[in-house]
């Protein structure tokens, strides 16, 4: 599947490992929360796929072993993933990749980035143009967010260029 990073489509090196499949020998493995305990192994690049009802606390202990956290949006209207991503960044200091997967609209792209999401998995054949347009749409923000270090010393401010 195409992966959107900074508005550009990039290669996705990760392999989603079904619950009944063996771990790949040399590719970074994206596993479900259920398989996370057995998948943790020194030297393995590991990612976890979190369902929409997951909380950051569910993976807090495993964060040092994780390079990727994929957050699922079952429907674009379901905004739990925004809070999950932000909590992973702000409360737990997770610095790896946070990926949004599922049903997401380009109109939500900037919100995702501001909540600390790094990449978005797009459906096969999706046009990245509206995503790039969404990225440049707003140069202004009115509140602090996860991806911006500036404290709330002013409500209104210009966002850094994407």
């Amino acid at each position: 599947m195409p992966l959107l990073d900074g508005g550009h489509v990039v290669e996705d090196p990760w392999v989603l490992v079904p619950d009944d499949a063996p771990f790949p020998a040399d590719a970074p493995a994206l596993v479900t929360l259920k398989r996370l305990p057995e998948a943790r192994r020194p030297g393995r690049r590991l990612g976890v796929l979190l369902g929409p009802a997951s909380r950051a606390e569910d993976v807090a202990a495993a964060l040092p072993d994780l390079s990727l956290i994929a957050v699922e949006f079952p429907k674009f209207r379901d905004g739990r993933g925004f809070s999950l991503a932000r909590t992973l960044r702000e409360r737990h200091g997770f610095t790896g990749e946070i990926r949004a997967v599922g049903h997401i609209l380009p109109d939500q792209y900037r919100f995702l980035l501001r909540c600390g999401v790094s990449t978005v998995a797009l459906p096969e054949g999706a046009d990245p143009a509206p995503w790039q347009a969404a990225l440049g749409r707003f140069g202004v923000a009115y509140q602090p967010a996860a991806a911006e270090e500036a404290p709330l010393d002013h409500l209104r401010r210009r966002l850094a260029a994407p």
């Binding site: 209207r77 379901d78 905004g79 932000r86 995702l112 909540c115 707003f138 509140q143 967010a145």
Partner: peptide
């Protein structure tokens, strides 16, 4: 007004 600004296009709370 402060709440208006803070809540305007809030990245986390626009899909409650």
């Amino acid at each position: 007004e402060i709440i208006r600004q803070w809540s305007t296009l809030h990245p986390e709370f626009s899909f409650l």
